[in-house]
Structures are given as structure tokens and as C-alpha cells.
């Protein structure tokens, strides 16, 4: 039985889709069978980030409503053969996905994949609740910024109350993925530190993704960062995060910070 991971955040634009693509690709590169699922009905983008936008024939809603078979809707990645995509529909009808439909499709995916990685839409509405509903594991994507941290806190509350696991009295595994982190600004006291965010949200940290120009380049080209710029610090951080999610004990190093000359002389002064 596969593990269902939801990538969620509450706030938009923090890197859910980028992270879903990078984590999905990293897991698949280790030989595991992975399906990434776009839950953003009406505003699908995971296909674009993966460079598969012209290959979508059937989507999630077609399968959930029984109009297409799962095997017809799955798109196999051209670079990593164990990576598959189930695209979101572009219909404007947000209620096209039902609890029962989603449960059935996720159940089928669980049977044939090691990992099912669900890209949640932003917000705390129906779409976001459906994306987390049947998950075993959650990756909460957060930027070191006040509004993102607040929304993450809200999402953590929903993960603890509105998921199938929570309703059954058990717990969903929650992990924090800190993205767009700038170690230099943080060292200067201009940005929340890793410790600050961890103290406020108090869920375990699964990875720190440094702010990187390579991310935009990768999405321009339609490839997960781990494939397009595999040697970059951001790609390495995603690969490590994926290994931790898979249960491997990978030590978590703080991203390197280039200290200015004076700070090196006198030690770190900013909080």
C-alpha cells in the first residue's frame, strides 16, 4: 500500500507546486513508483511545471466521475519512468470532485504506487480540504514570512481535525518544509530564522530550501529543479527532504551563509 503525501500551505505562492514536482521526482529517481496529483481544480499548473501540459487528455475529474479509467489519465514522465502525473481539470465547477470520487481514485492510486503526492490548492476551502482528506503524511510548505507562518498554523489545525486519520482518532504525520529561505538575511536579523519558525509552528522540519534563481529557470523549462539543475543547493535540499520523507535519517545542515567581513571578525551580532 502506497503512502499518500499532501503538499499544503494555506497561503498561495509559497512553492507547493514546485515542491510537489521536486519531491515527486526525487522519490521517483530512487526507483519508487510515484504519482503526483494536481488537486487545483480550475487552475491546474503541475502539468506545466513538469512539462507535460500538451499531453493531458483525461484528468482527475474524468476519472473520479467514471468517464475515464485511471490508466487512461495517468501521464508517464519522459525522463524518469517511474514518475506519473494525474492532472487537474480546468473546469470551473469546483464541486465536480466529491468525497467519494476522490476516495476511490486515491484508493486505486495507493494500490499501484509507492507514493501518491497531492498538490493542494491554496486556501482552506473545499479543494484544500479534499487534498488533505485521505493523506497519511503532510508536508506544510512555509516561507519565513509572517503571513505564511500564520496560514501554516491554520493548516496544521485543519490537518489535526479534518482529515480521515484525525477523525478516526489517529494522527497525520506532519512535516515542515521551509522554502525561499535566505541564510544571509536571516543571519542579519532581517528574516525569521529556522529556529523561530520551528518554535512557533512546533512540527518537525523535513527540509530547508534556499532561495534560488534555478527554481524559476526550471519552471520556465518545464522540469522539476532536481532534474534541470540537479547539482544546485535547492535541488540537493529537495532530494534530502524526499529521503527524509522516505524514512532515511539524513542529517539536516543549515544552508551556508556568507558572512560579511566584519561579522566574521566580531562574531554574529544580529539576533
Amino acid at each position: 500500500m502506497g503512502n499518500v503525501i499532501v503538499v499544503t500551505s494555506g497561503k498561495g505562492g509559497v512553492g507547493k507546486t514546485t515542491s510537489t514536482a521536486a519531491i515527486g521526482a526525487s522519490l521517483a529517481e530512487t526507483g519508487k513508483r510515484v504519482c503526483v496529483v494536481d488537486f487545483d481544480v480550475g487552475l491546474r499548473n503541475l502539468d506545466l511545471v513538469l512539462g507535460a501540459e500538451r499531453r493531458v487528455v483525461y484528468d482527475f475529474i474524468n476519472v473520479a466521475q467514471g468517464d475515464a479509467k485511471l490508466s487512461q489519465a495517468l501521464i508517464r514522465d519522459k525522463r524518469v519512468e517511474t514518475l506519473f502525473l494525474l492532472a487537474a481539470s480546468q473546469t470551473r465547477d469546483k464541486d465536480a470532485l466529491t468525497d467519494e470520487g476522490v476516495e476511490r481514485v486515491i484508493g486505486e492510486l495507493r494500490q499501484s504506487f509507492d507514493y501518491v503526492v497531492c498538490d493542494s490548492p491554496a486556501g482552506i476551502e473545499r479543494g484544500a480540504l479534499l487534498a488533505m482528506r485521505f493523506a497519511d503524511t503532510a508536508v506544510v510548505v512555509c516561507n519565513p514570512e509572517v503571513s505564511s507562518v500564520r496560514d501554516s498554523d491554520r493548516i496544521i489545525g485543519l490537518l489535526d481535525s479534518r482529515t480521515r486519520r484525525a477523525e478516526g482518532g489517529s494522527r497525520i504525520d506532519k512535516h515542515l518544509l521551509l522554502t525561499r529561505f535566505d541564510p544571509n538575511r536571516s543571519a542579519r536579523g532581517e528574516m525569521l530564522s529556522v529556529a523561530d519558525v520551528l518554535e512557533i509552528l512546533s512540527i518537525p522540519l523535513v527540509g530547508i530550501i534556499p532561495e534560488s534563481e534555478e527554481i524559476l529557470r526550471a519552471s520556465n523549462l518545464g522540469a522539476p529543479i532536481t532534474m534541470n539543475a540537479g547539482a544546485s543547493p535547492a535541488a540537493k535540499a529537495y532530494r534530502d527532504a524526499a529521503r527524509r520523507l522516505a524514512g532515511e535519517p539524513v542529517p539536516l545542515a543549515m544552508p551556508n551563509e556568507k558572512k560579511p567581513f566584519f561579522s566574521r571578525l566580531f562574531g554574529r551580532r544580529a539576533a
Binding site: E145, V146, V149, R150, E190, D196, I200
Partner: peptide, 10 residues
């Protein structure tokens, strides 16, 4: 820096 203020507000 402004980060400690952000932390306190949050």
C-alpha cells in the same frame, strides 16, 4: 533587524 519583531507579533 526586523525578524525579532516578526517573531513576537506571530
Amino acid at each position: 533587524g526586523s525578524a525579532p519583531v516578526a517573531r513576537e507579533r506571530l
